[in-house]
Write a protein that binds this DNA or RNA. Structure first.
Length: 437
RNA sequence: GGAGGCGUCGCAUAGUGGUCUAGUGCGUUCGCUUGGAAAGCGAAUAGGCUGAAAGGCCUCAGAGGUUCGAAUCCUCUCGCCUCCGCCA
């Protein structure tokens, strides 16, 4: 969400942003609707003013005759068409919800993910003196992953973690939480079942309302009437990351400037319907409907340099974890076409998967400026009189399944065992996950 | 699942048809006072839209209705809480 005044004054830049981000939005229509909205509001104001004045005079009428005369006069007032105003407001809101943040000057312009730019690389893809297996084969042989039973019970993209697969995963999460806490982030386990506003506020709906056909979010209904939309009571959604729950923690609040920046990290189960990815990555742990993740978010004052600096810091913490885990990774700067509407500046981390022979997105760091805080109505006190919307940032700390894939594939031995990365050994109590022989 | 309660300007509350331009207390800020502070005294203290400004309009959870006029009456919706039952 942006300020309508800003939109009026920066139309050209916004049109450029709409084009470069590939958003379906007619800004001219928005400006037209805005004009109409202002005109109708003005009309309603004038009517209200005369009505209020008249009511006041009626209440002060000195006798019945005067009162009756004034009431008659009131009947003559022409009421503006407020129904029309409601419609205009609704259309205005719909269009406003789609207005993007103008991307940062350093963001490459591109149509899709092929326009992302590699800006940093740590390590090189590992060389093996044997043909490395992928995590599916490895996991099955080690009896730490079970996809057959996973889909039997959980359906498409279902999986079980077993034995050391569980300990590795929980170990990764503990490792990430400890790392974040050591960097001054407040740990939280937030709700994963949340109300609509939290997801809308963070930008997880493409429009004003949830649309199950395009939004990659599960809705939870507790009755048939809810499921069919007949009633909307208690409609809840499953979050795809801790981000919306962490950001919405402060929804509607005004924070003290001296308490900024607020740094939080959240551990949560994450649910993704993957509605637009039916045929993508159908095998293995790469793209699953539910997983565990530690997420980092930050709430900062409205200062672009500070926000960018913190974004870089958050990205570097994720990078450091990849390094400590011994995972070759690269950092990409995300281009306009691969960026969601609200983002100002974004980076992905990708780890190398020797078995699948590909890079795997293992993190995504985004700076939204005030696009989310306007939707969530989160401000801070800046000086004695001024209140400003905060800037909001988020970044993955560690996503469990993809990092697990990277560890299995990078640390495999010729015999199909897995060497446990040093930083995780404390959580497993062993140095090697041995294949049953 | 059953029963009941509640939703007012940061917090707590008052307000049952016009004098509400929403009162009071707490908190906060500023001033007076003081060597400095506390106390005391005085003042200020919601958000949104619109406007160059002055100002105007809207918002008492939300929507609709009754009325010349609604925080107040009616209907529905949403949200929260308590008790009972069931249960991890």
């Amino acid at each position: 969400m942006l300020d309508i005044k800003f939109i009026r004054e920066h139309t050209a830049e916004l049109k450029e942003a709409v084009k470069n981000k590939g958003i379906k939005l007619d800004l001219d229509e928005l400006l037209e609707v805005d004009k109409e909205r202002v005109a109708l509001t003005r009309e309603a104001e004038l009517f209200n003013r005369s009505k209020n004045e008249l009511s006041d005079r009626i209440s002060k009428a000195k006798d019945e005759t005067e009162r009756k005369a004034l009431i008659q006069e009131g009947r003559g007032l022409k009421e503006p068409d407020l129904k029309n105003l409601d419609g205009v407001k609704k259309r205005f809101d719909e269009l406003m919800a789609k207005v993007p943040t103008i991307p940062s000057p350093d963001t490459p312009v591109g149509r899709d993910e092929s326009g992302n730019k590699e800006i940093f690389r740590w390590g090189e893809p590992k060389e093996f003196d044997f043909e490395p297996k992928n995590h599916i084969e490895l996991g099955k042989a080690l009896d730490i992953l079970d996809f057959d039973r996973g889909s039997k019970v959980g359906g498409f993209r279902g999986y079980y973690l077993k034995n050391d697969g569980v300990l590795l995963t929980i170990g990764l999460m503990m490792y990430a939480l400890n790392k974040m806490v050591s960097r001054g982030f407040t740990p939280m386990i937030p709700p994963t079942l949340v109300k609509q506003f939290a997801l809308f506020g963070s930008g997880y709906f493409k429009g004003l309302e949830y649309d199950p056909n395009i939004d990659e979010i599960y809705q939870v209904a507790t009755s048939d009437k809810e499921a069919t939309g007949e009633i909307s009571k208690d409609k809840k959604f499953l979050v795809g990351t801790a981000e919306p729950s962490l950001l919405a923690y402060y929804a509607g609040e005004v924070l003290e400037g001296k308490n900024l920046p607020v740094k939080l990290c959240g551990y949560s189960q994450c649910y993704r319907s993957e509605i637009g990815s039916y045929s993508k990555d159908v095998k293995g742990l790469y793209r699953v409907h539910e997983f565990m993740k530690v997420e980092q978010v930050a709430i900062v004052e409205a200062n672009i340099e500070e926000a960018n600096k913190l974004q870089d810091e958050m990205t570097s913490i994720s990078g450091e974890m990849h390094e400590e885990l011994g995972l070759t990774y690269r950092r990409l700067q995300i281009c306009t076409g691969d960026m969601s509407p609200g983002k100002y500046r974004a980076f992905d981390l990708e780890a190398w998967l020797p078995g699948m022979k590909r890079w795997a997105e293992t993190g995504s760091a985004s700076n939204f400026l005030d696009w989310q805080s306007r939707r969530l109505n989160i401000k801070y006190v800046d000086g004695p009189e001024e209140r400003k919307y905060v800037y909001m940032l988020n970044n993955t700390a560690l996503p469990s399944p993809r990092v697990l894939i990277a560890i299995l594939e990078n640390y495999q031995t010729k015999d199909g065992d897995i060497v446990v990365p040093e930083v995780l050994r404390g959580y497993l109590g062993k140095e090697l996950i041995k294949k049953p022989r």
